[in-house]
Design a protein around this nucleic acid. Structure first.
Lengths: 357, 357
DNA sequence: CTGAAAGCGCTAACAC
DNA sequence: GTGTTAGCGCTTTCAG
C-alpha cells in the first residue's frame, strides 16, 4: 500500500542529481500549488493570478522542466508530428523536398518523423507501421508503389496521407505533385524537334520506382508517336549514381548505332553521362545531345551546362506539408494539387551534328 | 455519471466507418477477452493459450489495429525515438550522415525525429525543445554552437546527447567526429608543399559554423607556420552555394595579387570556384590549384577531377547512432570517438605554374 | 492462463 | 483563482 518504488525513489532524492525527469508534479510541489494550476499557468496564463504564475514560471526555469508532449498527445490524441517517408536522401532532389516539408512543418508547429525506404515497399511498410505506432497526425509518402495492405491500414487508422513526386490521377489517393509523364514528354519532344532520330534513355529502376516508369513510358510513347524505332540497347535502367549514368552512356556509345541524343531521367545520371562523353572526347552537344531531369543546382556548373527539366521540389514539399497540416487541423480531406515543370534549355542540346566514328 | 461523450460515441457505432482509431479495448471486446490478455498476446505470446492468441491476432488483422506507441512510451518512459538536428540537408554531405543515422536507428528499432536548424542556434533551441517535449530517448546535434541554456536543459532532463561533425576535445560534451582542424591543415600543408605561396581560402560563415572556423584557423595557422602572409582579400566566408564559391573565386582573381592556390573548405563552394576558373579560361591546375573538402560524389565528375579531403560522413552517422543507442539501452555514458580523414589527390592540384595575367 | 485495477504525466471538467 | 478528480491507451502486478 505504500507508495510505489518509483515514487519512492523520486521523493527519496528531492533535488538530487539533475538527471531524473522533472514532472509537472515536481513543479507544483516546489511552487506550492496543484498540478492543475501549473498546467494552467503554462497553457492559459491569463487564468492564473500573476503572482502565482510568476512563481511557477520561476520554478519551471530553475528545474529546466520540459513538459511531456507524450502525455499531452495521449489526452489530445494528436502528436503534432508528421511522418515522412522518402526513398533516399542521397539524391539531393529528395533532400530539397524534405527540407521544405520540414520547414513548413516546423512553421506550423509540427515535427517531422523521417523514414528512408531505400526504394523497398516492404521496408516502407515496416517504417510506416512504426510511424503509425508513434501516432503521426499525417503521413507524406513518395510515389505510388506501396505495400497493398499499407494504405488500408493507414485509412483504417484515420490518418490523413498524401503522395508526393507522383500524380495519382486514377487512384483515389491524394497527391501533391507534378506530372512525370508530361514533363518527360516535353524533354523528349524537344530532342525530336531538334531533329534527333536515334534517342537513348537512362532512367531509374522502373520496377521499384513508378516515377521512373512514367518517364520511361513517356520516352517510348514519344518515339512511337514520331514513328521512331525503339532500340532496347539504348534503354538503360540504373541506380541513382553518377557512375551508373556514365556506364550506361558508355554502353550506348559502344553500340553499332549510337544515339545522337540521350534523355537521362534524372540529373545525377545525366552528370555522369555527360562526364563520360567528354572523357571520350565527344563534343556535347556537337556530337551528342543530353537532357537531364530535376534541375539540381549542380547542372548549372557542368561544362557545358546541362539542359534539364526543372521540377518544383521545394514548392511541392512546402505545399504538401501545408496541405497536410490544413487537413489535420480542419479535419478536412486532403487536397490534391498538380504543379508544373519547365524545360530549361542550356548548353547540352543542339541539332544532330557531323558525328564521325 | 454516464459514460463520457467520447466513450459514448465509440460504443454507439460498433464497427462503423473504419476511420475511428482502433484501441486495444476494441480488440479485446471483439475477441471476448480482457485488455490484459490482448496485451499479453501481442507482447508475450507464449503466456497466452494458442487458441486465444490466434483469435486475438485475427481480430488485430481484421481491424488493422495499430498499437499506440504513445501510450506505451508513457508507461515505459522511452519513446524509441532519436532526435537529430542538422543545419541543412541541402548540402549533401549532411544528407549522407543523416541517411546513415536513420538507417542505423531503424536497424536498432528507433525512429528519427528530424530538425533542420538552418545554422541558427536560436532556431535549434526551439527545435530541440520540441524534440525534448516529444521525449526523444537521445539527441544527436551538429557542431558546438549551441544556445547556452540548451545543453543545460538536455542534461537536466537526463537525455543523452552527442555532437557530430566537430570534435569536442575541451568541452565535456561527447562527440563522434573527425578533427576539422587537422583535416584542413593536411590540405593546406599539401598546397604549401607543392610550392604555393599565395593561398586563398573560401569557407562557410565562421560566426554560425564552428566547423568552418576550425578549418579557417587551420588555414591561417598554416600560413603563419610557413612564414606566409595572410591577405584578408584572399579569405572569403560564404554560404554553401556553388554560386558563392564562384563569386568568391572571382573576387580573388580580381585582386592585384591573385592566389596560385585556393582551399575551399567544402566541395560545394569548390565546384563553383573551379567552374568560375574554367569560365575565365584559366587552366586548373596549370594556372591555379584548388582543393575541396568533403569528397562529395560529384567531385569525381568535375573536369578536372577535384582534389579534396574525404570525410567519413557515413561512418560517422552510423557510429553516432549506434553509440547513442548503446548509451540509451545500457544507460551508460556516451562514448566519444575520433574518426580519420584522408586527402584525396586528384587533378586540380599542381605546383604553381607559368601563370600570366 | 486470464481478469481487475492501478497508474504513467498531463488536462479538463467540476467544485470550492 | 485554485484544487480535486477522472481518464487518455496501455502494461503490469496481483488475484483467481
Amino acid at each position: 500500500m505504500a507508495s510505489s518504488p518509483r515514487t519512492n525513489r523520486r521523493s527519496a532524492k528531492p533535488p538530487t542529481a539533475g538527471t531524473d525527469k522533472v514532472t509537472i508534479r515536481d513543479v507544483a510541489l516546489r511552487a506550492g500549488v496543484s498540478t492543475a494550476t501549473v498546467s494552467r499557468a503554462l497553457n492559459r496564463p491569463d487564468k492564473v493570478r500573476a503572482a502565482t504564475r510568476e512563481r511557477i514560471l520561476k520554478v519551471v526555469e530553475e528545474t529546466h522542466f520540459v513538459y511531456d508532449g507524450i502525455a499531452v498527445s495521449m489526452i489530445s490524441r494528436r502528436s503534432r508530428t508528421i511522418g515522412l517517408i522518402i526513398p533516399t536522401i542521397m539524391n539531393s532532389i529528395y533532400a530539397a523536398s524534405t527540407q521544405s516539408i520540414q520547414r513548413a512543418a516546423q512553421a506550423g508547429g509540427y515535427t517531422v518523423l523521417l523514414g528512408v525506404s531505400e526504394f523497398s515497399p516492404k521496408q516502407e511498410a515496416v517504417l510506416a507501421q512504426r510511424l503509425l505506432e508513434r501516432r503521426v497526425d499525417g503521413l507524406i509518402l513518395t510515389g505510388g508503389n506501396h505495400d497493398p495492405s499499407l494504405i488500408k491500414k493507414i485509412r483504417a487508422n484515420g490518418v490523413p496521407f498524401l503522395i508526393t513526386w507522383k500524380l495519382m490521377r486514377d487512384q483515389d489517393w491524394p497527391s501533391v505533385s507534378f506530372d512525370n509523364y508530361k514533363a518527360a514528354r516535353a524533354a523528349v519532344d524537344f530532342l525530336v524537334s531538334l531533329g534527333h532520330r536515334r534517342l537513348g534513355l537512362v532512367c531509374g529502376r522502373t520496377d521499384v520506382n513508378d516515377r521512373a516508369l512514367d518517364r520511361r513510358r513517356a520516352f517510348e510513347d514519344c518515339l512511337q508517336r514520331h514513328g521512331l524505332s525503339t532500340n532496347p540497347a539504348l534503354i538503360h535502367e540504373r541506380d541513382f549514381e553518377m557512375e551508373e549514368g556514365a556506364s550506361a552512356m558508355a554502353a550506348m556509345l559502344d553500340t553499332p548505332e549510337p544515339p545522337t541524343a540521350v534523355f537521362c531521367a534524372n540529373d545525377i545520371q545525366a552528370i555522369g553521362a555527360l562526364s563520360l562523353c567528354r572523357e571520350r572526347g565527344l563534343e556535347v552537344p556537337g556530337d551528342i545531345s543530353i537532357v537531364g531531369f530535376d534541375d539540381l543546382p549542380a547542372t548549372s556548373y557542368t561544362r557545358p551546362k546541362l539542359t534539364t527539366v526543372r521540377v518544383p521540389a521545394h514548392d511541392m514539399g512546402r505545399r504538401a506539408a501545408e496541405i497536410m497540416i490544413a487537413s489535420i487541423e480542419r479535419r478536412t480531406p486532403v487536397q490534391s494539387v498538380e504543379l508544373q515543370t519547365e524545360l530549361i534549355v542550356r548548353e547540352t542540346t543542339a541539332p544532330p551534328g557531323r558525328r564521325v566514328f
